[in-house]
Simulated assay, not measured.
Amino acid sequence: MRAAGLQLAAVLVLIAAVSGGSQAEVIDDILGSLSRAASFLERQHEHINLDGVLGYFMMQAELKEAIRTWPHSDPVSWAQRTTAVALAKRLDQSLEKAVTAVQQNDPKYYREFEPVLSWSFYVIPQTWRATDPSLVYSSTMTNECYDEQLGDKCLTLLLGTWKMNGTPCIVTKPCRDTMTRFGCPHYSLSHQLLYFMIGKMKGCTNLLKGDTRASRANMTEHSYKKIFCSNMMKANQDLIRDGLTEQMADIFMENILMCGMAGFSDFYKADWLQQILRRQDEEVGCFGRDKSIISQIIGDELLEELQPHRRVKRREKILPDGCSSHTTGVAVGAVGGYLNYYLTEQDITKRPLS
């Protein structure tokens, strides 16, 4: 218990040192960021693609969990909760409009992923654990080892949307082999984790059933999550060490979003939050905005249509104002996770497991 108390104190000191203020001020910063992102969604709900909308649903799930468990500590905290409640109501309205637009703009993709287009699908961590540096791969492939088309198929087999009224929780050998492959980098790694997370949230059991490899005999779903997030932690640390570029910020934030939601609290570093917040466009509220790219949008979208699987970052869409739909989605989901985690830190019954 004393160790947990020291850990909490260290976190609070770090937050104050990085933000120049108290935890209440950090939560104000988070709520302000999420509010600006909500305003962006309200304006652009007709154009944000499914992947961007998914990030907002994750944010909404985290926001609603934060509201449910908000500490009744002081008037400032309670005023912040009131702000969060109003924000959640705004999101309910704009997400409903955004889902309708996705259904009209991309009906096949919508049908395949309809089950995850609800905040109630997502399970927010109730306890926390840390990654393990000893699980980092000795070597990592230089190229992605994840095929987007196969990946989408594997997810629809879990969700039961591979056909009308399809049976859910189906795991084929190609899916299992792909999702348990070691040494994958970047988006391949985060999508392997996503597979296990969606399987759990859908209520699928025995995702590893049928794996006869002796070397994997004692592996559980949690084992894979810990391996993946330990490697995603190493990837993020390397990105920070080398100087986080705009090109790599998307995967950096996706790792925080995914592993934070998987319950790994060491992704919620205070300086990493600042890395995310400073990438929000003050003018329009999105993330990943490149004003110089606006004139290139038509050409980029044409190239995307000609080569729909040229990258594993799912279906990216650059919006008319130069904003990235995917980057905005992962950023708001990651920031929402910080809110829930920092509030958990105030609750002595929900501190990280040592």
Rank of each mutant, 00 (worst) to 15 (best):
C175Y: 00
K226A: 12
G285S: 06
G329M: 08
D238M: 13
S325Q: 07
V136L: 02
E46M: 05
G336L: 08
N231M: 01
T140Q: 10
R81P: 02
P125N: 07
D106L: 04
M219D: 08
S134I: 05
D152P: 04
G21E: 03
Q93G: 07
T82P: 00
V136F: 08
E114P: 09
D152T: 09
H326D: 11
K97V: 04
S215Y: 01
K202N: 11
A101M: 07
H47N: 12
R278T: 11
R278K: 15
L63D: 11
H326V: 09
R351L: 15
A130T: 09
Q280W: 01
H222V: 06
T349G: 13
D266V: 05
L303T: 14
L277K: 04
T172L: 10
W119Q: 15
Y137N: 14
Q192F: 06
D290L: 02
K200T: 06
G32V: 00
F121A: 02
L189H: 13
A24C: 00
K209V: 08
A331F: 14
P133V: 01
K108R: 07
A86M: 02
P75E: 03
L6W: 04
M253L: 13
K64C: 05
H222C: 03
N231F: 04
D321E: 06
A86L: 03
M58E: 06
V85Y: 01
G52S: 01
E305V: 14
R289V: 13
A17V: 01
D106C: 11
P308K: 08
T83L: 07
S265Y: 10
I297C: 00
C286Q: 12
E144C: 05
Y341G: 09
T245V: 04
L150H: 07
H222M: 14
W162L: 15
R278S: 12
R181M: 13
S223D: 02
S134M: 02
